Simulated assay, not measured.
Amino acid sequence: MHHPEDDCYTLRSMCEGSVEAFELFYERYAPLVMKVALRVLHDRMEAEDVCHDVFLEVLRRGSSYDPRRGSITSWLAIMTRSRCLDRLRKTRRLVQTEQVELGAETEAPTEELVFSRLRKDALVDALQALPANQRTAVIGSYYGSQTHRELSEEWNMPLGTVKSLIRYGLNHLRKQMEKRGWAHDSESSRNRSGNGKEEVHK
Rank of each mutant, 00 (worst) to 15 (best):
T136G: 09
S164H: 10
S141T: 12
E154K: 14
T147S: 15
V138M: 03
N171Y: 11
Q128V: 09
Q134V: 00
M157E: 12
D125W: 05
Q134T: 02
G144N: 07
L165N: 00
Q134Y: 04
E150K: 01
N171C: 01
Q128C: 11
G160V: 10
Q146M: 11
E154F: 09
W155P: 00
L127D: 13
T147G: 06
R167Y: 03
R167D: 03
G140V: 02
R167F: 05
V138Q: 07
E153P: 00
L151W: 12
L151Q: 15
L127A: 12
E150A: 12
G160F: 02
P158A: 03
Q128H: 15
N171R: 13
E153A: 10
D125V: 09
K163A: 03
S141E: 02
L130T: 08
Y168S: 11
N133A: 10
V162C: 05
S145Y: 10
A137K: 04
P158M: 02
H148Q: 02
A137C: 08
N133C: 05
S141Y: 07
D125C: 15
G140M: 08
Y143I: 09
Y168N: 09
E153V: 10
N171F: 02
L170F: 00
L165P: 02
D125A: 15
N171W: 00
V124A: 15
A132Q: 13
N171T: 04
L159V: 10
R149Y: 07
K163M: 11
S145F: 13
T136Q: 14
W155R: 03
L127P: 13
Y142H: 14
V138I: 09
P131E: 06
L170Q: 13
Q128G: 11
Q146G: 01
R135C: 14
Q134H: 13
R135P: 09
T147H: 06
T147V: 08
Q146A: 09
V138A: 09
A129L: 14
A129W: 03
M157N: 01
E154P: 00
S141K: 12
L170K: 13
E154W: 01
G144E: 13
S164Q: 12
V138E: 07
P131G: 04
R167L: 05
S164A: 13
T147Q: 05
Q134S: 02
N171P: 00
A132I: 08
Q146D: 02
Q134P: 00
G160R: 14
G144R: 12
D125E: 15
I139R: 05
